[in-house]
Amino acid sequence: MEIKLTINGDSKKFEVDPSTRLIDLLRSAGYQGVKKGCDEGHCGSCTVLLDGQPILSCIKFAAQADGAEITTIEGMGTVNDPHPLQQSFVDKGAVQCGFCIPGMILSSKSLLETHPDPTEDEIKRGLDGNYCRCTGYVKQIEAVQSAAQKMRGGI
């Protein structure tokens, strides 16, 4: 069956099997920033935004996403022109191996859209479900706070 997706602003068509998971479609189409950790909905490394909301692409049937807008980490910023969230994660030392970071950044982006000045609890809730096996989570909270401030025009 054929499905249409808008990925990071580009509309694309894909031929999929009804059993194809969104993660496999995205990774084989070159969006390898979508990470496969547990592959069963626990770790959050496969998080992408579907119509602006974080979802787990490893347990999402691609066919069900037909017509949706998908944002992956490739749609956020580049090495030379990082998104404020990406820059803040680097500046605050919130990244070690980096495996969880695409999911963290996308979840943070979705959070800041509705909560431009989030409390610490709101950040914890927004990042809930993104496991990090390296950093210990504290730095990521600081990174989101700092990015939020920049994005509000505070710095």
Binding site: G41, Q53, P54, I55, L56, S107, G126, L127, D128, G129
Partner: peptide, 9 residues
């Protein structure tokens, strides 16, 4: 229930 991305699903 679960986590934020799970609750969206």
């Amino acid at each position: 229930v679960g986590t934020t991305p799970l609750r969206n699903m």
